[in-house]
Amino acid sequence: MNWRRFLGTDTLLPYLLLLPTLAYLLVFFLVPLGNAISLSFWGEEGFTAQHFLGMFQDVKFGEAIKNTFFLALSIVPLQLITALLLAMLVNTRFRGSKFFLYLYALPLGISDLAAGLVWLAIFTQHGYLNSILMALGLIERPIYFISYQNVGLTFLTIVLAEHWRATAIVLVILVAGLQMISRDYLEAAEVLGAKRWQKLWYVILPLLKPSLQSALIIRTIFALQMFAVAIALGGEIVPVLAGESYYWYSSYRNPHIASAYAVLLMAISLGMTWVYLRFLRTRPEVTRL
């Protein structure tokens, strides 16, 4: 058997084509995963929990973990609802709906850091929001949206910025999912006498469940990792886990505790995914990430 013929066979070719990706993933995912775990568990004299203890004792740790969870918990559901509404709206296919859809998808290209800066221009002390409120005569002095005195408000600005930036991805996933739902189902439901909300509840949502699930998982994972928005808007007012990892590495030059934060994030991500897969069960063959 000559080698060209051999390589041309369908048995070997796919593996050959996968090889570069597999090798790359090995070097840049599997190895770093191992390294991160060893960085966070390995000290001068072998295995140690000292780095994790260091992380737990970090003054910001409690706040960071609380903020990370609360941010994810407030952003993701809000995004899901907004995106679902927008997706349904666009899916009515009114004239110009395509144009609006592309518009809504725009923030997909905007980075978290840039989004933070965009909203900083709005929420900063002498920013656009205060200027407008002032011009309208609604306030007399600027409101301090971003300050240590008003952590709640600062938190809110982060939620808004994140919602603005990252709802697009949910929207795109949901619209793609909606497009795969044949109009026949809806028409069938209509013929059977379903009202609009019944169609939504009994036909669209169940069929959209895989898309909803994947959007939920993707968004939750990225919301947990969010940090640049928080830093750009709030500096260190609202610390988050990924941000702490960043500070521990770049400011305090401690890769061990930085890794401990990263490993914790990964564990939380995996845990959340498991929860979603477990409790939002779809048939395994329609589970999509």
């Binding site: 840049f28 995912f29 390294n35 994972i221 990924a242 890769p255 990263a262 490993v263 994030l265 990964m266």
Partner: peptide
């Protein structure tokens, strides 16, 4: 995978 988990090691 969180970016941090890859980037640091």
């Amino acid at each position: 995978f969180p970016t941090a988990l890859l980037a640091i090691p």
